[in-house]
């Protein structure tokens, strides 16, 4: 089967008064049917920019300057707004962070889901749309009668579930989840992640999970792309990335998350801070913080290539 999503050499920049902010450059990845891909990295690494590029909802100044986004073989980059509207929700649905504020406070949640269904499927009448909303509620573990509630009658965790139900209302092929559960408490976050895993298995969904928390990615995704300063620096199976991280940045990032299971240790960190993307460092963007930096790292940009271990790709001169 061909991949659901095939992103090739995607470059999205923001035009500001001081010049182009290179938020994402030369990003390539694939999402196979029924597979979850995790995009991981710190704030400012370009992961949300990628998500917004995929559904072409970039904020003002954001421009896709290069590359292709092949969704079921169709390139989304040249599509006009009205054509894109057919792809969003029916093709690619998204759950963004901040579930607290995603619903309109003055309409019943059920009505908001019905509106989403009817906007995208013109031939569905209100009654069957409402029935579908009830079924969706059951699927995400909410009582179907509660479609008549207003958002303020729901707790944070319930709103997050309702939001997931709404995203799935039109049977999308691909679900983008940007930092799901970040604003929620640990236990509610764990409930949300468990729900997403169940739904993925049940509906055979393809998913892109965006998070700064590697543990969340480890629990939910089969494939992982680690991003740093607008680039993918490592890409491969979750197992091989977590057990055998190759890029010095990935190694540092994994060490920065102490496991609750392990013995008490002193925390380790990556010295320095992420670069300013108006003037990123030359060649490898990680070179000012890298413990293994060599001369070549400041001159030649390392391409994302095979490391010799299966499909595990890494962009680092240590593996030339």
């Amino acid at each position: 089967m061909p991949p659901v999503l095939d992103v090739q050499d995607l470059t999205t920049n923001y035009l500001t008064l001081s010049g182009w902010v290179r938020a994402a450059e030369g990003v390539s990845f694939k999402v196979e049917p029924g597979e979850a891909l995790g995009l991981a990295g710190e704030s400012g690494c370009g992961k949300t920019t990628i998500a917004l590029s995929l559904i072409k909802l970039l904020p003002r100044g954001g421009v896709i300057r290069k590359g292709k986004i092949l969704f079921e073989g169709l390139d989304l980059v040249p599509l006009k707004d009205n054509e894109m509207r057919k792809i969003r929700w029916k093709g690619i649905a998204s759950v963004f962070q901040g579930a607290m504020n995603a619903f309109n406070p003055v309409f019943k949640i059920g009505d908001q889901i019905v509106e989403a269904i009817q906007t995208h499927e013109k031939d569905v009448d209100k009654k069957s749309a409402m029935a579908r909303a009830g079924n969706l509620f059951k699927m995400v573990g909410l009582e179907p009668e509660r479609v008549d509630n207003y958002p303020h009658e729901f707790s944070g965790g319930m709103r997050q579930r309702a939001l997931i139900a709404m995203a799935l209302a039109t049977n999308p092929k691909l679900l983008i989840a940007d930092e799901p559960g970040t604003a929620l408490d640990v236990i509610v976050q764990a409930q949300t992640l468990q729900l997403m895993r169940e739904l993925k298995d049940k509906l055979d969904l393809s998913m892109i999970m965006i998070s700064h928390d590697l543990s969340i990615i480890a629990e939910t995704c089969e494939k992982v792309a680690i991003m740093y300063a607008g680039r993918v620096v490592e890409y491969g199976d979750a197992d091989s990335i977590f057990n055998e991280p190759l890029h010095p940045y990935t190694q540092g990032l994994i060490k920065a998350f102490p496991s609750v299971k392990g013995p008490r240790v002193r925390l380790s960190s990556i010295p320095g801070q992420p670069p300013d993307l108006l003037n990123p460092p030359p060649a490898c963007r990680f070179n000012p913080r890298c413990p293994y930096v060599m001369d070549v790292c400041k001159k030649i940009d390392p391409p994302l290539t095979m490391s010799g271990k299966g499909d595990h790709l890494v962009a680092c001169h240590l593996y030339d």
Binding site: G157, D185, V260
Partner: peptide, 23 residues
Amino acid sequence: ALVAAVPVPDPKYKRSNVISGEI
């Protein structure tokens, strides 16, 4: 429950059931 809810950075780790409800 609190400790069990913490995500673990290991893809092989399978989490036992999470308690339901909120504070």
